[in-house]
């Protein structure tokens, strides 16, 4: 463990810096090369070709929130299942049944949400 893991993360850290620097430098260079002629009409935000009306606010539907919540729940569920999956080859049948119960409970939740119409877009 020890140093190998830290070395791996060091590489990832360096790679992140490079991956962020390359586009940033390119955009900077392009900024130098491109013309800069701002005027109020060009800078106005786009609204189907008409003048902007009102501040930029949006009233979201609760549907988005439900999708995000469902995603959160299944995300946490998957994260709890990953260690089990890693140990899977060495586990007895009891452990596998446990995970099946875990999954089944959440499948039940999914079907409940489905029946209640929480998963419809409109």
């Amino acid at each position: 463990m020890g140093h190998e893991m830290l070395n791996a993360w060091l590489y990832i850290g360096l790679f992140t810096l490079v991956a962020a620097a390359l586009p940033a430098i390119a955009i900077f260079l392009a900024g130098l090369l491109s013309p800069r002629k701002p005027n109020p009409i060009k800078d106005a935000t786009y609204e189907c070709g008409v003048e902007t009306v009102g501040p930029a606010w949006t009233q979201l539907r609760v549907q988005y929130y439900l999708f995000a919540l469902a995603f959160l729940i299944f995300d946490v569920e998957s994260v709890l299942l990953f260690p089990w999956a890693v140990a899977y080859q060495q586990l007895p049948l009891f452990a596998i049944v446990e995970a099946i119960i875990f999954l089944a409970i959440l499948v039940g939740g999914l079907f409940y949400a489905w029946r209640k119409g929480a998963l419809n877009w409109q």
Partner: peptide, 15 residues
Amino acid sequence: EVASVLLLAALIGAV
């Protein structure tokens, strides 16, 4: 297992 029940409760509550 209790964690999965907790997640289920969250889902049902939100719905």
